[in-house]
């Protein structure tokens, strides 16, 4: 009887451990199933690039519903409408990256309107641009 009662606290610990692991499993499988925050690495496609000898340095612009994220700076649609200042911000970001820098617009499903400002700015400033559709839950890996 003493031996059997000695098992019980240990069993409690084991059962508790099992519960915790089951919980971890559920959380992990849910995050896998939902595809939340899918990590994505955007790689510049370098075929047919005229500056093949230089390395390409993308300046990422994430286009969302009413704003864009230029690197880590949030620029609202209202700020984008102030064209001169918006262009200045893009030029600064490009100059900061140095030779081979270009704009890479990552367009979320709700960000196609703000993308038009980015594309127009790239055209006005004569900056090369690439653009890619991205899902709302994509997390960029730099």
């Amino acid at each position: 009887m003493n031996r059997s009662s000695g098992f019980l606290p240990f069993m409690d610990i084991l059962t508790g451990l099992m519960g915790i692991i089951i919980l971890i499993n559920i959380v992990l499988s849910l995050s896998l199933a939902d595809g939340q925050d899918v990590k994505v690495k955007i790689i510049p496609k370098e075929e047919n690039i005229t500056w093949r000898d230089k390395s390409m340095k993308p300046v990422m612009v994430v286009c969302a519903s009413n704003h864009v994220m230029l690197q880590k700076t949030r620029i609202s649609t209202k700020q984008m409408k102030a064209r001169a200042r918006f262009h200045r911000k893009i030029t600064d970001a490009i100059e900061k990256r140095g030779d081979g820098a270009y704009l890479l617009a990552l367009i979320k499903p709700d960000g196609y309107r703000s993308f038009r400002y980015v594309r127009a700015a790239a055209k006005a400033l004569d900056i090369r641009i690439g653009y890619e559709p991205i899902d709302g839950n994509w997390e960029m890996v730099y």
Partner: peptide, 20 residues
């Protein structure tokens, strides 16, 4: 749990994006 954690961690997709 280990397999799921690794799957979550390594779930990185490469997307090739060209320029205009």
């Amino acid at each position: 749990a280990i397999i799921s954690a690794l799957a979550v961690k390594e779930n990185v997709y490469d997307v090739f994006t060209p320029v205009e």
